[in-house]
Simulated scan of single mutants.
Amino acid sequence: MALGLGIDAGGTATRWRLVESAGRCVAQGSVEPLTGHLFSAAAEERAKRIVAEMAQAVTQTGAPASIVAGITGLTRDTPAEATMRNIFSEAFKLPGAKIFVAEDMWIAYLSYFALGEGILVYSGTGSIGYYLSQTKEVIRVGGRGNLIDDGGSGFWIAREALKAVLRKEEESPGEGWTSPLGASLAKALGGTEWDIVRTFVYGGDRGRIGQLARAVGEAAQQGDEISLSILRNAGQELSRLANSLIKRVGSRPVALVGGGSRLHPIIAEAFRHELPTSVEVISNDVDAAMTAARLAATVD
């Protein structure tokens, strides 16, 4: 029976699912984060290594006949798309015609909506608003990376939290790290000394920093006002993405998805509050890797 491999590559992990043509998942797993930012030889070599590791794990169950991959940071019809397709082709010994690669939001959108049906707002390590028209035209808002924006994302939440704690510590030494937010961050960081914080932040990648957002969610669950304020602001930042797309494509159902939006209910509450009352908000999570795998399994 032909197998389809679906891949959902985000900022914190690359998840894969291997599915039979009937739609049953026969194997699944995850590897390191894979990005479409192939701007250097080193980045290409890293991508080759990660895909090779994935191929080794996948083929223990069976060789896929086709692959559909959604990869963060990848833009269609660019040299990076062709390079990534070649990397998969070599690792899985498949012709390029059997491999479809696109940005991760392409697959995520189809997990929730038919073409042109709704608006997707995603908060993971990064954030983006996304619309895929009936003619497959993509309209993106946000999604410009943490150096420019990514408002409401896990990275953004973590950065705002670190900034708040460190500024409080500068104003009143000892009060920043002893707050619920500070204590939660310190546990995740492994300490409070500046060298520890600096090494964690500047010695890792954006996905690792984004994971600190969980500590903000934990502090918010304890009623920490600073954490609640940051998460409320995150919801408002995400609503801006939705409202920008509503203004451009008209009123549509909006799906608020991604781990960053699930840190605390106040995010979704603030998001909903800023949208027109007539707009339906969808907040259930869907397995994008499974969507990709089922699409792959239907490829002739």
Rank of each mutant, 00 (worst) to 15 (best):
M290T: 15
L147G: 14
Q222R: 03
E274C: 06
G152W: 00
K168Y: 03
A13N: 10
T59E: 07
R17D: 00
S111W: 04
T72C: 12
G118D: 15
A164S: 14
E169S: 06
I71L: 12
A97N: 13
R49Q: 11
V121Q: 09
A234G: 01
D285K: 03
T125C: 05
I99F: 07
A22Q: 10
G210H: 14
K48C: 13
A288T: 15
T135E: 13
L120D: 02
A158F: 15
G124T: 06
P64G: 14
G118F: 15
Y109R: 06
E103R: 09
L147Q: 12
T35G: 12
L231H: 08
S244L: 12
V101T: 15
W16S: 00
D195M: 05
W177L: 04
G6P: 04
G260C: 03
S239V: 01
G260W: 01
T298C: 08
L34Q: 00
E218A: 06
M54P: 05
V201W: 04
C25Q: 08
R262A: 11
P33W: 02
L166R: 06
R240G: 15
Y130G: 13
P33T: 05
I119F: 06
G203F: 11
T277H: 13
A65G: 14
G174H: 07
K48V: 09
A164M: 05
S89G: 02
A215E: 09
D150E: 02
K98Y: 06
M290N: 08
C25K: 10
V299A: 13
S229N: 07
A108W: 00
H264G: 10
V257S: 09
R24P: 03
V165P: 09
I67H: 14
I282V: 14
G62R: 05
D224S: 01
Q236G: 12
A22P: 00
V141E: 07
E160W: 10
Q222K: 02
R198F: 01
E170G: 08
I266S: 10
A186I: 14
H273D: 08
L245P: 09
